[in-house]
Simulated scan of single mutants.
Amino acid sequence: MIAEFSEFLESFSVRYERCGTLFLFPDKEVTIRLVTLDVAAGLTNDVIANIENSPAVDAVNDATNSADGGGRCIYLYEDRWRSGGEVIRKRILAHLGCFNSIFARKCRVEQLKAQQAADFLEKYHSYGTSGCRYRYGLFYEDKLVAVATFSSGRPMTRFFGGDERILESYEWVRYASLPDCRIVGGMGRLLEAFVSDVGPDEIMSYADYEWSPGDAYLLLGFEKVGEKPPMRFYVDRTTFKRISERKVSADKKFRGEVFPAEKYALISNLGSAKYIKQYV
């Protein structure tokens, strides 16, 4: 994986330095650490033993920070690299400054049909599409360039100055944009459209630690309120496709199916950060 990733960077004349599986880029505020299936499987064993403390993300973060002096790090899992094709490569290049800029103020917002949003997310979001109630798209010159989806509301108990209140809380389920574009202000524009239409008391969302600690949410006025423990996945060693362990347990079509180690690697992701923004 190291040689293949190095060749990819060199083919686009990207300058880098390497320390083991850690790639550092002069004048860039990002580093990339490669996570092979075997290493990811090792993280799973750590999580099983210490799930409450989520040591996997802490251990990898500490190792990365000690090597590069801190900064944002992308954890590129081998299955993502091998199954992501052109999309993952464009996404990596975008994080390294090779992208087209589109300003959200020059785009129009439209509500999307379910299949239109699902098709976009299946192609461009790391975890594909997911159930939702509201779907918004950002169009630039009649081309769909970004999608955001939100759940239905549900009552949640919150405390304000010792007083209990019931808030209508919604989840920001997905956000994705074209992998070779940076939509400047895109998340904010789609969020504003949802808030204007629905009027939520509260919105919560998660930032995937594989890609980001969630700085974009902070810029939008969200507050980090916790973390979601790492999740485990079976990865097909031939196709490199992920199947969540939770789905295997819940979905009847997997009942009785065996995932032998020679065909599947049981890996762990790095968990996620939970963010909330209130409008009351």
Rank of each mutant, 00 (worst) to 15 (best):
E29K: 11
E29G: 12
V30S: 03
V30A: 02
T31V: 07
I32G: 00
I32R: 04
L34V: 07
L34N: 05
L34C: 08
L34T: 02
V35E: 08
T36Q: 11
L37V: 06
D38L: 08
D38S: 13
V39D: 12
V39N: 05
A40D: 07
G42K: 01
G42W: 00
G42N: 01
T44S: 07
T44G: 06
T44L: 04
N45V: 13
N45G: 07
N45I: 11
D46N: 08
D46H: 08
D46L: 14
D46R: 10
D46V: 14
V47F: 07
V47C: 09
I48A: 13
I48S: 12
A49T: 06
N50I: 13
N50F: 15
I51D: 13
E52N: 06
E52C: 12
E52V: 12
N53Y: 04
S54L: 13
S54R: 12
P55Y: 01
P55V: 07
P55K: 05
A56I: 08
V57Q: 01
V57F: 13
V57E: 00
V57Y: 11
V57N: 00
D58F: 02
D58R: 12
A59E: 15
A59W: 14
A59K: 15
V60E: 13
V60A: 08
V60K: 10
V60R: 12
V60M: 13
N61E: 07
N61Q: 11
N61H: 07
N61R: 10
D62P: 00
D62M: 13
T64S: 13
T64D: 15
T64M: 11
N65K: 09
A67L: 09
A67Q: 10
D68F: 03
D68M: 09
G69V: 03
G69W: 00
G71I: 03
R72E: 13
C73K: 04
I74Y: 03
Y75I: 01
L76H: 08
D79R: 10
D79T: 05
D79E: 14
R80D: 11
W81R: 01
W81H: 03
W81T: 02
R82L: 09
S83E: 15
S83V: 04
G84Q: 09
G85F: 00
V87G: 00
V87R: 04
V87E: 02
V87M: 04
K90L: 07
K90A: 10
R91V: 02
L96D: 03
L96R: 10
L96P: 04
C98I: 14
C98G: 01
F99E: 03
F99K: 09
N100Q: 15
N100R: 15
N100K: 14
S101I: 10
S101F: 00
I102K: 02
I102A: 05
I102G: 02
F103Q: 06
A104L: 04
R105G: 09
R105D: 12
C107H: 03
C107P: 01
C107M: 06
V109W: 08
V109T: 11
E110P: 02
Q111V: 06
